[in-house]
Write a protein that binds this DNA or RNA. Structure first.
Lengths: 241, 241
DNA sequence: CGTTAATTTGAGACCATTCAATTTCGGTGG
DNA sequence: CCACCGAAATTGAATGGTCTCAAATTAACG
């Protein structure tokens, strides 16, 4: 874990999607990176900031959020290791939202210019990057639907389906059991509900033997049932596997 | 209007953002396009479809939407002339949502392969395309916030602010007066409300002398006031002008 | 083992929904 | 030009899902 390249998981993930040549691979692994760690709830990116680098999550979870003028918060996405938390900041000049660590995080920060030079020089990498941002975009669209048109049970169920599937696909869980460090308040901020109602909704899902959730562990007891309740269709994740 | 190139508005819009050389410009204008028209409420793209082309809106309005299993609809974005309604379909294999015309539309359809070849050959154009998709993405994020955390007055006000600003920026309105063909049901589907409550909310905004809205015409009477109510900050549109 | 964060519970209030009926608007044909 | 029609907008009243506010319980952590 220690001295292997921080960007190895990224290359592995991209490699599943696009055919990467050895040259491509080495170009990515040769990127200048700064290792950083963030303690729980730290700000990794702030809205309004000029963009100077992009951040690959190596260990831990992160989330994007926006604050309203009245202090309310809406979480916009969650991120797991091997994902960029702010790839759009390689292209856009100003960050339009905040990124926070969910727990202790290790990241690799890549200077914006180096990343863009890489994209210009390597078509396959550029494509992988573009696809990353486009899948992000698709997830945001699904979240608009989730908070816009689903009731509380469906919202929570849908979010759990998404996270469970993404965790499983990256090997971060087995048999429907996952390390799941989200608080109920964070689940609430991601689904547009209050923490209190999120609590009652989780109880309702537990009562129906769809999930177990406690001590930072999520157990999906009934995947089909949970998908049903959450109106979940994984098409939007574009996981061509 | 008739025989000038359909893609002229697209080139003009991109030119404001990135420096395009004459070669760039001509390359775009030389794209093979199919002109199509759609009558009101026609489907331009369907979820699940294999992607074969991308569509530039030349005249009329369009919107993206997803349907839930119970038939409910969530509108995800609106589009005005000179914008692609589905640029991500140049890269992703499968459409993950529907696109519908709002009124009579004229569009230019560009084959996916031609568009991607262009992107590979012309760095400036590729960047313009990437930025387009990234701004889309930023708008989706803001919509997550809008439907997730704002009350009905703020949701409607915010949506009106966004559309008014985008229309004004493309020269499709002056002095806060816009051609605005959205029905209240469509406003409702975009904000996650019911048509009935949207109606009452609009009345409330009218009562406060913030807007007039009737006969397909929107008049913004108090821009600052409307921004205030909608908690609107245009940063997310990334309009570097 | 104390202290704070996170979860859970209860009761009442409220914003938005539902359902149904009515009115207005826009377009069409006689 | 008026009568007609369906779509869109408007209104009312009752219902309900979610919120608010507070307090109590449990879990996490140094």
């Amino acid at each position: 874990m220690s001295d292997t390249n921080q960007l190895e998981p990224l290359v592995r993930r991209w490699g599943k999607r696009c055919a990467l040549s050895d040259t491509d691979r080495e170009a990515v692994l040769g990127l200048p990176v700064t290792r950083k760690s963030f303690s729980k709830d730290a700000y990794m990116v702030r809205e309004g900031q000029r963009t100077t680098e992009c951040t690959v999550l190596v260990r831990g979870f992160a989330y994007r959020q926006k604050l309203l003028s009245d202090g309310d918060r809406q979480i916009i996405s969650f991120h797991i290791p091997s994902e960029f938390v702010d790839l759009q900041n390689g292209v856009l000049e100003t960050a339009d939202h905040n990124v926070q660590s969910l727990n202790h995080c290790e990241v690799a920060a890549v200077p914006r210019s180096a990343l863009m030079d890489l994209a210009d020089a390597y078509p396959a990498i550029r494509l992988a990057m573009w696809i990353d941002t486009l899948i992000d975009s698709s997830v945001f669209r699904e979240w608009v639907v989730n908070v816009g048109r689903r009731d509380s049970r469906a919202r929570i169920a849908h979010l759990l389906c998404e996270l469970a599937l993404r965790l499983e696909r990256t090997g971060a869980g087995r048999d429907g059991i996952f390390n799941f460090p989200l608080t109920q308040e964070q689940l609430a901020d991601a689904t547009g509900l209050t923490a209190v109602h999120t609590n009652r909704t989780l109880q309702s899902l537990r009562r129906d033997n769809l999930i177990q959730l406690s001590n930072g562990t999520l157990r999906v007891l009934d995947w089909k049932g949970l998908c049903e309740v959450g109106d979940f269709d994984e098409l939007y994740l574009h996981q061509q596997i």
